[in-house]
């Protein structure tokens, strides 16, 4: 496998997919969440306990929205595979000197690039709303690591969905439900407390976005403890499993067969 081929395909993906529609999807929705939820809930909630400290709601929401970028970037990735399949470019690219693995890696690189780009924009907007955000080098490292792992998870998840979807409508409908479910059944927007109904607590605990949001939040406030390591391990395990599932689904895409 030639990594430079995957980078070339990632460049192609970005050139093809960075139309205004994609950018609105990638940036507008999280920005609206940040502004509306940040100000609306921020005025109602005094502060949220994270670790031993208590932080303002906007400071809680900002890392949540940054981690949310992994989900939106993953959705764009799945859309890329679907669109390439639907409009013949998947087969056309594979008739060029590119392997299936390079194509897959190209989409993963694109997802990571879009997630990091989206995260940077969200950090800038948050910083303007909060009045400055600072984090240490280790914190930045944790944020970057989890953005990368998180985008691989969601990229793989939505890629698998795109690989098995029989129609555009099917892919889009399921993707919207997943986006809605995964973002609200997580700790992106609010913390989980003892008073949260048990069913919801378990759902949130099973959602990888919870771990991405929690670890990014830990990176924001430089909270490095045992819980961070456990979260990282769970996230890594989930990502490896999801990547394997995506790989299997992706291999079932038959080309040249009508």
């Amino acid at each position: 496998m030639d990594i430079s081929n995957s980078i070339r395909l990632a460049k192609r993906n970005i050139l093809v997919n960075t139309d205004p529609g994609t950018l609105v999807f990638l940036l507008m929705m999280p920005t609206l969440y940040l502004v509306f939820m940040g100000y609306m809930f921020g005025s109602l909630i005094g502060g949220i306990a994270v670790g031993s400290s208590k932080i303002a709601y906007m400071n809680f929401l900002s890392p949540g929205i940054v981690s949310f970028q992994t989900l939106t970037a993953g959705a764009v990735a799945g859309g890329m595979l679907w669109s390439d399949r639907r409009y013949g470019m998947f087969e056309q690219i594979l008739s060029c000197p590119y392997s299936r693995a390079e194509y897959l890696l190209g989409i993963m690189f694109t997802t990571i690039a879009l997630a990091i780009f989206g995260a940077i924009i969200m950090i800038i907007i948050s910083s303007l709303l909060i009045g400055g955000i600072t984090f240490g080098l280790a914190g930045l490292g944790i944020i970057m690591l989890n953005l990368i792992v998180g985008s691989i998870f969601w990229g793989a998840f939505l890629l698998a969905l795109a690989a098995i979807s029989k129609s555009n409508q099917m892919y889009n409908s399921i993707q919207v439900i997943i986006l809605f479910f995964a973002s609200f059944a997580s700790t992106v927007f609010y913390p989980i407390s003892g008073s949260t109904p048990a069913a919801l607590r378990y759902t949130v605990a099973l959602n990888p976005l919870t771990y991405i949001a929690d670890t990014v939040r830990d990176g924001y406030i430089s909270l490095f403890n045992g819980s961070l390591i456990v979260d990282e391990l769970i996230l890594l395990f989930a990502t490896i499993v999801m990547f394997m599932i995506a790989l299997l689904s992706y291999r079932t895409i038959k080309i040249g067969v009508k």
């Binding site: 050139l15 093809v16 409009y87 013949g88 470019m89 056309q92």
Partner: peptide, 26 residues
Amino acid sequence: IGVVLQEESFDFTTVEKSLDIYGVMW
């Protein structure tokens, strides 16, 4: 080799950009 497949295949972009992107890929 070069392959012009029977099925339609195109990127969601302009004609000029489509040719350019294909050139980048090659």
